[in-house]
Write a protein that binds this DNA or RNA. Structure first.
Lengths: 208, 208, 208, 208
DNA sequence: GATGAATGAGCATTCATTCAT
DNA sequence: CATGAATGAATGCTCATTCAT
């Protein structure tokens, strides 16, 4: 609903920036992107047809192909866009912080906020991240997941933790808890930031 | 109606040894089920066609309809079967245990063992659990998830934990970490039981 | 119009031979083949759609795919069928003859008769033989042309001809004259056999 | 309307040197024409898309429509151009010659040289000459073929030939042999002029 | 001159499903 | 039990073409 499509244009250059203030042109491309993302999220990529997307935008199916070269290109664009948003938010949150636990908590808060309150495209990324695909999409998804893995790996490596604790399991737990959150999360409960704080407190201090 | 064929093998085989005593009967039905499950897992439900399943079994597509009413019926059967296996393994592990933390750890170990080392059908359940569907499947999936939620809710409610700790977040973290594990898990690393022990230790004692 | 489809079945075995007397089953497959051939001939392969073929037979487009796996498979079948007919007729004509010139004339007469009065499928072969294609069809067409080339090469090699005469040019001339005949031939004029006789007389004795 | 660009090159190049004196003008039009001709020849008219042509020239598909009214117009232009080249070369060769056989041989040599060594456009004409079309193109092709028929008919009518020889078959043989030559011709073998000489010798003196 | 954007018809093909045999 | 044969709807995509700019 909120976010505009900030994917890197597939064809020429970006016709009309659609970032902050300018809205102008590049309209249809962004509309198509947004509609595709919404449908990918709610029905899944495979269950979404190009006709569905076209109908949602109010154009003929053929028109989509002027803006995106294939259905898979739309998914790749979505995945890249979602990954970009996620990375940007975590990067912004961890910039110059000092205390490792605080830094990790902020990273998690940023991640969860973007994931749970960000635009649909972020969740598309997360859902599609789990299904094995082929070709371009598969490698894109793998790369993105690995980048993410490493990002949190570094943050966790910096943590001063007890001898008997496995950093790998710590990372697995944190990432798993966050990854699963879109499945359980309801807007009425705790905020993403609160969830992050509780999660970090839990794995830091325990509950016993 | 209830799905047969809970054989462990990932690929094909297991002709017979379904249900209780019968060996020969229900052979084709089980083969079809197994093939469907394997394909659902590796390609996803939507990307799997009845032709694919038929070809994997070596029958004509029409023949599947003698055994299963529809493609969705195959998914429902798979989901029910996977949930049954999961529930049975957790039930067996928690049966008469006393210490709440040990009980929870055993439940998690059982859950992870079944999820990570059990038959494909268990993982199908887990992957399909995350995608919104319609009709019969959707309600089945919802019910299964809720049952599971409650199972662990009870185990966690029995835990003697500190005042400042949210049981909800504790549950969310544990379930999330476990749910995400099929995505990261590699057979060469720690065993499901070791993962469960580390997970419980982490959320019980923390790592700081 | 006349000939039935005698192409090698694509799927299982031939359901109901349709050669001489038996007509019985295998009906639709043959109907589809004949319709495709007629359309390929009159409009060209590229300009013929599967919908056209389906409409001509009176089935749904999808039904064609039960009998032939693709449009190209239909072309391959046609090409193979046409080549078979052509080869069979020339083989039958040249069987045990002795005089080389007579033998060549009979081969030409057989070739022209089949080409000009035979079923559509023969002419499909000839027209498609001239257009470069890709994949399976291309290699099939090349092989067929080469077989033909060799067939006439042998017949011409056996000819007792003058020193100054190039067998290559002789072959080129004969094959070219025959290949071009569908373009000019009108049923009201000379018969294929007469054309063959005139052609051989021309290249044997000249006209000067 | 009349087609430009009769440059020899097969691929691209030849910017300028169209028509008579002008160099710069009609550039894009000629480029489009050349690209279309090359594609028509190698893939066939039906299998060539306006996008293909546009991409080959480096313009947008819409731009073609500024220069040519339609795809068919491009074919008509090609056909007319090819016919013009062919006619011009034969006309030039037969101008003031006296001996009928020599005259015919020169006509054939000119025809074959233009057909086999001339620009792509000539061969496009020949290939498309064999496929029945509709509307404008069809009548153009018919007219061209008839003109050609008559040209050689006159040359052959002038020949002093024996009583038992059919002029029709003689013409059919000569035209057929020449028409088929693009299918067999390889640059490494005999030249078009040598082929013409051999062909005429063959039909004049025979080979027996 | 050229093109960005769109169109509507059409493409080959695949889908889950049905049903008489 | 199984299938040969078919279906009708839907699939992703390409087509030649148009037109305002």
């Amino acid at each position: 609903m909120t976010a505009r499509s900030r994917s890197i244009p597939t064809k020429r250059s970006s016709p009309g920036r659609h970032g902050d203030t300018t809205i102008a042109a590049g309209n249809k491309r962004a509309e198509i992107f947004d509609a595709a993302v919404a449908l990918f999220l709610h029905r899944g990529y495979d269950a979404t047809s190009m006709r569905d997307i076209a109908a949602a935008v109010g154009v003929m199916p053929a028109s989509i192909y002027y803006h995106y070269e294939s259905k898979e290109a739309l998914l790749v664009a979505a995945v890249a866009d979602g990954a970009g948003l996620l990375k940007a938010s975590v990067d912004a949150a961890t910039d110059s912080e000092l205390d490792p636990w605080t830094q990790l908590e902020r990273a998690c808060a940023a991640h969860l906020t973007t994931l749970l309150h960000g635009p649909d495209v972020v969740r598309v990324l997360y859902f599609e991240l789990q299904r094995r695909r082929e070709g371009r999409v598969e490698s894109d998804l793998l790369r993105i997941r690995r980048e993410y893995e490493n990002l949190f790996r570094d943050l966790i490596d910096a943590l001063p933790i007890g001898d008997g604790v496995s950093r790998t399991h710590l990372r697995l737990t944190i990432l798993g808890a966050m990854a699963w959150s879109p499945v359980w999360y309801r807007r009425e409960g705790d905020s993403p930031t609160q969830i992050a704080r509780a999660l970090i407190a839990l794995v830091r201090y325990g509950s016993g």
